[in-house]
Design a binder for these strands. Structure first.
Lengths: 128, 128
DNA sequence: CGCTATACCTCTAAGTTAGAGGTAACATAT
DNA sequence: ATATGTTACCTCTAACTTAGAGGTATAGCG
């Protein structure tokens, strides 16, 4: 039960990513976790525990609805966006775009340091 | 003691913003809170409680050092980055740039919805 | 049969944040 | 002098998010 110092770089990102995916098509938990990694090139990687927690919370709040399906002999719980869920995604996405822009602007003001980060030190990974 | 549902859109943003400012010059808590609002055009607005909590934590961890100064008859506690603090800022900034870029890319894939958010619904504000 | 991958789930510890609350000094206006 | 407002510091709690460990069960393959 040794716990890392936990950087905890962000909040709401898992939810945002999940809503983003479900806005396109119905998906199941396990699939969502893999898809987020694939979509962001591993920049964002959420654990299964977080994924299911978020999915359950969103369903409880009416943003998602689920149905059990048997596909290729496997039992899966597919989640789909409700109208409320779509609205929630649009709000979250809007807020994040604004925030992401603001942060980039502010941080990039030290261009020397950005140069180093981007071209010399290379990429970064955020374990969500 | 009525509590809002707490959107809690992000984590680490207050720390990032504070380090960013102190990387330029020595500042005091109250000043930092105003500066963040000004710098981001109110997109990011951290409460005093959060600001002082973060400042104290960062000092405890050796990322900042403080000194009490009397300026214009007012007693202020000025915080400055240490070497460790600078390093910490550079790491955090790098991670956030990458994250912000990834999120923007992913979200902007639904361009219709982005169009609406950006040009029709207008800006968003995030209370951190 | 044992192994791996799929697929679901729960729990705890640690962390962040909002917001309410509080103190004190100074500045200006009444 | 007193009131009000601003500056400037601080603490506390409740709510929430997250990481990570742990657990179950089924399917497919060698």
């Amino acid at each position: 039960m040794a716990r890392e110092p936990n950087p905890n770089f962000m909040a709401g990102v898992p939810e945002l990513m999940i809503l983003r995916l479900l806005q396109e098509r119905e998906m199941y938990g396990y699939e969502i976790v893999q898809a987020i990694r694939a979509e962001t090139g591993d920049v964002v990687s959420i654990g299964e525990g977080v994924a299911y927690t978020v999915l359950h919370a969103l369903e409880r709040e009416g943003a998602l609805k689920s149905r059990r399906r048997r596909v290729e002999g496997r039992s899966r719980i597919y989640y789909a966006l409700t109208q409320a869920g779509l609205k929630r995604y649009q709000n979250l996405a809007g807020t994040w775009l604004t925030l992401a822009r603001a942060i980039q602007t502010v941080i990039k003001q030290d261009s020397f340091q950005t140069f180093i980060q981007t071209f010399i030190m290379g990429g970064h990974h955020a374990a969500v």
